[in-house]
């Protein structure tokens, strides 16, 4: 008998499986095998506890479609991760012409290359738009207030990191637009007083846009920031599950005094 029991959804009786007839020996060997494999892992990790804690949470009355914007952003991030990993299989960060050539090759020659690159390119804009919608939802529903301030702060860090992803990713196709947009972007960074000049030297790896600038942007874009992003998303989700979500502002809290009077 499997030990793992997942909570059953509240289905009407006629949709629930019929109870076994007494004396019946019919079993489903495939399902049993699957469940016992999960059991084996669960017995050694107790992962089902965590999964249950994360997935089967109580949510407030009035929860609506606006509450899906955060998961939508998460899925945009996952899509960027997967397409990005596969783009990296063909991309070459070579400023002497190889980068542009490899992007041209991805777009024109690789099977579904244009599609995967398109998903990554347009997906980045989608992710930024979703982040702002998610942020607006949090703001207008007052979901940033106590005790969720830290989650707002983490969210702002995630927004800034996503912007940094957009900035570093823009250079990678290495066409005229990327090149000059990056020159302008680095120089905007340079206008910060005192630290600006050193910041732009750091971004360019020197005083001029040179041989290692593209490699530097590539490393920041695909190794440094994604790692930090993933870790912070984990913290963001942990706090959502721990603190729970808020009801929309138009939902009145149940007043126990009023309830008693009515009854």
């Amino acid at each position: 008998m499997p030990k793992l029991k997942l909570p059953a959804p509240p289905l009407p009786d006629r949709l629930n499986p019929r109870p076994k007839r007494p004396g019946s020996t019919k079993t489903k060997p495939l399902a049993e095998a699957g469940i016992s494999a999960i059991d084996w892992v669960d017995e050694r990790t107790s992962l089902s506890q965590g999964a249950r804690w994360m997935m089967f949470r109580k949510i407030p009355k009035g929860t609506n479609w606006f509450y899906t914007l955060g998961s939508a952003t998460l899925f945009a991030f996952l899509s960027q991760t997967v397409t990005g990993v596969f783009l990296a299989m063909y991309y070459r960060p070579d400023a002497a012409g190889g980068a542009y050539e490899s992007v041209r090759y991805i777009t024109n020659e690789v099977f579904l290359g244009e599609f995967v690159r398109g998903m990554h390119k347009w997906g980045s804009s989608v992710m930024v738009i979703l982040i702002f919608l998610h942020m607006a939802r949090t703001f207008f529903f007052g979901a940033y207030k106590y005790p969720r301030e830290l989650n707002w702060v983490i969210g702002v860090a995630l927004l800034v990191l996503t912007m940094a992803m957009s900035f570093t990713g823009y250079l990678l196709p290495f066409d005229q637009r990327s090149y000059w947009a990056t020159i302008v972007g680095v120089n905007i960074n340079g206008t910060g007083p005192f630290v600006g000049p050193y910041l732009s030297d750091f971004l360019r790896a020197g005083p001029e846009f040179g041989a290692t600038t593209l490699a530097r942007f590539y490393a920041i874009h695909m190794l440094l920031i994604p790692g930090i992003l993933a870790a912070l998303i984990g913290a963001h989700l942990y706090l959502v599950a721990k603190l729970g979500t808020t009801a929309p502002p138009w939902i009145k809290a149940d007043d126990p005094v009023q309830k008693e009077e009515k009854a």
Binding site: T191, G196, P207
Partner: peptide, 23 residues
Amino acid sequence: SPRDPGQALDGIGQYLYPARPSI
């Protein structure tokens, strides 16, 4: 010493945007 674009050199500009060791 060379400054990047956007960094003023008149008035206090040359102190707000110091010269860099790299150039």
